[in-house]
Design a protein around this nucleic acid. Structure first.
Lengths: 173, 173
DNA sequence: ACCTGAACACCGTTCAAGT
DNA sequence: ACCTGAACACCGTTCAAGT
């Protein structure tokens, strides 16, 4: 049973000591409940990213800090992260969910923009650079959450990835 | 209903015009069936990667070709990919499944090794570089499969990501 | 060897009925 | 307003019985 579908409304009701029909009063659907959890997840993630993003300092350091915070959160709550992103891409995702998710992405995009403004990032399409950076973080998350990468050296892997993205894996000379 | 759990054995049996108990003769479990599908997926992916990896040519081009092939496959069969990686990380994944999966990763690792050997990649820990490269590809996959990145410019995104990994996003001068 | 079909213990969802 | 509990249509799994 994969993380999301392992959650049963009836079991939840049982644990709460209430009848299986009761949750219906609070959540119209199973997915309404899942959506609410996903919104909560994005809100918490946004707070985590905000805290990690020290306004001062070199861009490379701020990016590293945010990346570490993101990857720690994402690998620390694998089921929640899966829920957040699988809920978000449902065709009829709630406006609230989209708003919460976009706040997180905007935060990353702002960071990239500031790097371009200060010249620490080469001028390039903001969207595309943002996507590349975010994809790298999500990729680390995916590898760790499917146990293809150990989480022992998690921060080191994150920092190496950020470094590779900034300075390249090819010899620089 | 997420991709993997959307598949019902009873529905499968119905579609095959057979009783719901019949699949039991061929697959002991629902997961035994899913594992068999995952193995098939890795085998097909391995063939795709082998075909993409032209032995001659510059490393950067070969990496681009393999990356494009991987991302196309992964985003072209989202449910299969989710199944492949979620099955693989089950604690009691079959030896057959692990073997099929490892063949794909070894192929990527070989490519990285050849880049280091030719000097087109800086000397560094093979495992870590392999992980960074693979994470990037899996990250693109995750973004596209959760509809956070469009698949219109999929190859362009892949090529840009490979370029960023090789040469960096920071100004090079 | 392979399939059938009833049985069991679970789901999510709906809805009349209670308080 | 909120909860209950039966009902319905689904699951996966098991198992005696058929061919």
């Amino acid at each position: 049973m994969s993380g999301v579908d392992g959650l049963s409304l009836r079991e939840l009701a049982r644990d709460a000591g209430v009848s299986h029909g009761a949750p219906r009063r609070h959540f119209k659907d199973k997915r309404a409940l899942l959506d609410a959890l996903a919104v909560e997840g994005f809100t918490r993630l946004d707070a985590v990213l905000a805290r990690a993003n020290g306004e001062g300092g070199r861009f490379a350091d701020r990016l590293s800090d945010v990346a570490i915070a993101y990857v720690r959160f994402a690998t620390g709550h694998p089921a929640l992260l899966e829920l957040m992103f699988s809920s978000k891409h449902e065709l009829d995702a709630s406006a609230e969910l989209k708003t919460a998710a976009n706040a997180c992405f905007a935060r990353l995009e702002d960071l990239v923009r500031s790097g371009q403004a200060s010249g620490e990032l080469a001028a390039a399409d903001l969207q595309q650079v943002g996507t590349i950076v975010f994809a790298s973080l999500q990729g680390i998350t995916a590898l760790v959450n499917t146990e293809m990468a150990g989480d022992a050296d998690l921060d080191a892997l994150t920092v190496s990835t950020v470094r590779a993205l900034l300075y390249g894996l090819a010899p620089r000379s």
